[in-house]
Simulated assay, not measured.
Amino acid sequence: MGKVINLDERRPHITLNTQAGRVHVVPASVFVDIAKGDKTVDCLDYRDELLRLVVAEWLEHVGLYGAESLREVDD
């Protein structure tokens, strides 16, 4: 069972349902800091898992044919 956290301390936040079947809640400020260059992706727990989902969603957003299948949960 996962750790229970107070989401009020992490608002606004982004909820990510990864291909590994896990749910992660990340404060939006973390992604803003990464985009600004104030933090690196190394600050993320489950970095590779989260980046896999972010890239898959980005590819779908830019219209890459077949990208929606990249977000499917692994068995």
Score class of each variant (00 low, 15 high):
73 V>K: 13
13 H>N: 13
14 I>D: 02
75 D>A: 10
48 D>H: 05
59 L>T: 09
55 V>S: 12
70 L>A: 12
43 C>P: 02
40 T>R: 03
30 V>G: 05
31 F>I: 03
10 R>G: 07
32 V>D: 00
12 P>R: 09
50 L>S: 02
53 L>I: 01
21 G>F: 04
63 G>T: 01
28 A>M: 08
37 G>E: 01
32 V>L: 09
35 A>F: 04
28 A>S: 13
49 E>R: 03
62 V>F: 05
14 I>W: 00
9 E>T: 10
5 I>P: 01
22 R>P: 01
18 T>G: 07
63 G>S: 01
27 P>G: 07
55 V>E: 14
26 V>Y: 03
54 V>K: 05
14 I>C: 00
34 I>A: 06
50 L>N: 06
74 D>M: 04
16 L>F: 02
8 D>G: 13
46 Y>S: 14
49 E>K: 03
26 V>S: 06
9 E>I: 02
35 A>T: 03
21 G>A: 07
43 C>S: 12
31 F>M: 07
54 V>L: 07
39 K>Q: 11
12 P>Q: 11
28 A>D: 08
47 R>W: 13
43 C>F: 00
70 L>K: 07
37 G>T: 09
47 R>I: 06
23 V>E: 14
25 V>L: 13
18 T>Q: 06
35 A>V: 00
50 L>T: 04
33 D>W: 00
44 L>R: 01
8 D>Y: 13
12 P>Y: 14
20 A>C: 10
32 V>A: 05
4 V>T: 09
60 E>I: 06
5 I>N: 03
42 D>R: 01
60 E>T: 13
33 D>S: 05
51 L>K: 11
10 R>W: 13
75 D>H: 07
69 S>I: 03
27 P>Y: 12
5 I>C: 03
49 E>Q: 10
7 L>T: 15
3 K>H: 05
29 S>F: 11
57 E>Y: 15
46 Y>K: 08
17 N>W: 11
16 L>S: 05
70 L>P: 15
28 A>C: 08
14 I>H: 00
27 P>K: 09
37 G>L: 01
27 P>A: 03
4 V>P: 00
